[in-house]
Computed example of a mutant assay.
Amino acid sequence: MSTSDNNYRFASSHEWVKDHGDGTATIGVSHHAQELLGDVVFVELPEEGEDITAGAVFSLVESVKAASDVYAPVTGEVIEINDALEDNPELINEAAQTEGWIAKVKLSDSAELDNLLTSEAYQASLED
């Protein structure tokens, strides 16, 4: 999947946010992150209704290589989790920025999205 979609923003810690334009957003880990992780074998999902804070751990992804914390790129309330990851954690490897999403959130402050990297800036940071 191309990361050139203008609705995507990225944290330097390799999480993505897709802004739906209605005060909600979807969060997951970037294609680059899943490549670094290797084969994903388990995802610890947040709870629906849970409040998450930008910069704080809200999920955990375990691969055959390591367990990695997933940091919330924005602040908000988890309104939906990707239950499919419980039985098929490899969705993160197969489609990190589509079917492999982790959670949908109601944003506390959509202005936080402006603090994240654009797709172009994120791609450039990977080349440094």
Results as ranks from 00 to 15, higher is better:
125 S>W: 10
90 E>Q: 11
60 L>V: 12
30 S>G: 00
2 S>Y: 02
95 A>F: 08
7 N>D: 13
50 E>I: 07
40 V>D: 00
70 V>A: 03
85 L>W: 06
80 E>N: 14
5 D>C: 11
80 E>Q: 06
30 S>F: 04
112 E>I: 14
93 N>C: 06
60 L>A: 10
4 S>C: 01
98 T>N: 14
18 K>A: 11
39 D>R: 05
3 T>Q: 03
90 E>Y: 09
111 A>Y: 04
66 A>I: 03
76 G>Y: 02
26 T>I: 09
123 Q>R: 02
95 A>K: 10
24 T>S: 04
65 K>G: 10
63 S>I: 13
85 L>K: 08
5 D>V: 15
103 A>Q: 00
83 D>K: 13
87 D>W: 12
53 T>L: 09
98 T>C: 03
122 Y>I: 07
12 S>L: 13
125 S>C: 10
98 T>I: 11
112 E>Y: 12
73 P>K: 14
100 G>C: 10
23 G>Q: 00
51 D>F: 00
90 E>R: 08
31 H>C: 09
123 Q>G: 01
51 D>E: 05
5 D>L: 14
8 Y>K: 13
106 K>D: 05
67 A>E: 01
41 V>I: 11
52 I>A: 04
100 G>V: 13
87 D>Y: 06
66 A>V: 07
97 Q>L: 09
110 S>V: 13
128 D>I: 14
93 N>G: 02
15 E>G: 11
1 M>T: 01
73 P>D: 08
125 S>A: 14
45 L>I: 13
27 I>F: 11
77 E>V: 14
35 E>Y: 04
109 D>H: 04
7 N>G: 02
84 A>W: 08
25 A>S: 10
119 S>T: 10
16 W>P: 00
94 E>N: 09
79 I>M: 03
44 E>S: 10
60 L>C: 05
28 G>H: 11
5 D>P: 03
87 D>F: 07
45 L>S: 00
16 W>N: 03
38 G>W: 09
82 N>Y: 07
99 E>M: 01
57 V>H: 06
77 E>A: 14
15 E>W: 12
119 S>R: 09
80 E>K: 12
26 T>P: 01
81 I>K: 11
27 I>T: 13
13 S>C: 08
65 K>D: 10
11 A>I: 13
42 F>G: 03
34 Q>L: 13
52 I>K: 10
21 G>T: 09
49 G>S: 06
62 E>L: 11
114 D>K: 05
84 A>C: 09
90 E>L: 06
48 E>D: 06
72 A>P: 05
43 V>S: 09
99 E>K: 08
62 E>C: 00
24 T>G: 01
87 D>R: 08
114 D>H: 03
63 S>D: 11
2 S>T: 06
113 L>Q: 01
124 A>M: 04
6 N>A: 12
12 S>V: 14
30 S>T: 13
124 A>P: 00
125 S>Y: 15
4 S>T: 15
127 E>R: 14
122 Y>V: 02
1 M>N: 00
91 L>C: 04
98 T>V: 11
41 V>R: 08
124 A>G: 01
85 L>R: 13
64 V>W: 05
25 A>H: 08
64 V>L: 05
17 V>W: 04
17 V>C: 04
88 N>W: 04
59 S>G: 03
31 H>V: 14
120 E>R: 13
65 K>Y: 14
93 N>H: 07
78 V>I: 14
9 R>K: 15
90 E>F: 05
33 A>E: 00
64 V>I: 15
